Amino acid sequence: MTNTFKALVVEKENENLNLNVKEIEPSDLPEGEVLVKVKYSGINYKDGLAAHPNGNIVKDYPFIPGIDLAGEVADSKDDRYKAGDPVIVTSYELGVSHFGGYSEYARVPAKWIVPLPEGLSLKESMILGTAGFTAALSVQRLEENGLKPENGTVLVTGATGGVGSVAISLLKKKGYHVAASTGKDSEKDYLQQLGAAEVIDRKEVYNGKLKKLDKQKWAAAIDAVGGEPLASLLAQMKYRGSVAVSGMAAGVELPSSVFPFILRGVSLLGIDSVYCPMEEREQIWQRLAGDLKLDNLEDLVYKEAALEELPELLPAVFESNHLGRVLVNLEG
């Protein structure tokens, strides 16, 4: 590798954060058994938090964000990996307390690495990224809990976001009738292109009034919103329906009652992609390269960005003004 390479460095000055692409050295990287030449990364909600003064996920500066990366092994102290091996690293402490993927090189613990499965390119793996992994994990958990296409409509909330957009496509591929909930009336065509059979206004899920029980509508749901909309959604689930929840865009409080659970047998499934066991993690990535491989992956890319564009793009994460995924290309 070269003596220096580029990375996006976040530095803190008083209460302000400065984001700049800088030249750093290998000695600046944290400890880890495997050095990866990063090819691609992506932008996630947590990456926006890591670049926000009040994000509260990064404790020490300077810092390199990026909770996803895919690339080739440059050097390894672990016998399982050799130079040139294509690998994926997502979750764990990457981009939170351990320097992340917004760098031309990253050094990571070997136990965080997933070998790139056959049938998936490095670029495709980062079009999916943590968002795609979370969506696939949600689908798997719902099916393990009994969901089948004949059970009825599956609702996806926050449908234009990273998790939501991939979830729609995965469910469509598996033969489900998908309803997409969104506050963006202009994106009906986009959501239908992804595979939504119907697009509804998010006010149909939550109109500002909570009921302990409501009309039964959904066989299952993938929710990346949380908060009061999730409480309203639980009241609308069909008997023995399941909700896979992975987000908190609408808040962390859940003002629900026990009625959906004890009168309708509804299941609330927590989806954690951060510390998902490695055996299951590898299985999900194998499925994303196999039976869940999407034909429309490129349709999920809102923008392909260079490292130098990130100081402008990361603060915009909270404006919710893009669709699908932003792919970060570090190949130059």
Rank of each mutant, 00 (worst) to 15 (best):
M1R: 10
F5H: 11
K6Q: 12
L8V: 03
E13V: 13
L17Q: 12
N20R: 12
V21F: 02
K37S: 14
L49W: 04
N54L: 07
G55Y: 11
N56Q: 14
G66Q: 02
I67E: 04
A83W: 00
A83E: 14
G84Y: 10
V89A: 00
Y92C: 00
L94E: 00
S97C: 10
F99E: 02
V108C: 00
K111S: 00
L116I: 04
S121Q: 01
L122Y: 01
L122N: 02
I127N: 01
Q140K: 15
E143H: 08
G146I: 07
V154K: 02
T160W: 04
G162I: 06
V166H: 08
I168M: 09
I168E: 04
L170N: 09
G175H: 06
S186W: 11
D201R: 13
N207L: 05
G208N: 10
K211N: 14
K215F: 04
Q216V: 10
A220L: 06
V225Q: 09
A235V: 05
M237P: 05
Y239Q: 04
V243G: 13
V245F: 08
L254F: 15
L254K: 07
F259A: 12
L268M: 10
L268E: 13
M278P: 01
E282F: 09
Q283V: 15
I284M: 08
L288S: 01
L288Y: 02
D291H: 15
L292C: 03
L292I: 09
K303C: 05
P311R: 04
S320D: 15
H322D: 02
L323T: 01
L323Q: 05
R325E: 01
N329K: 05
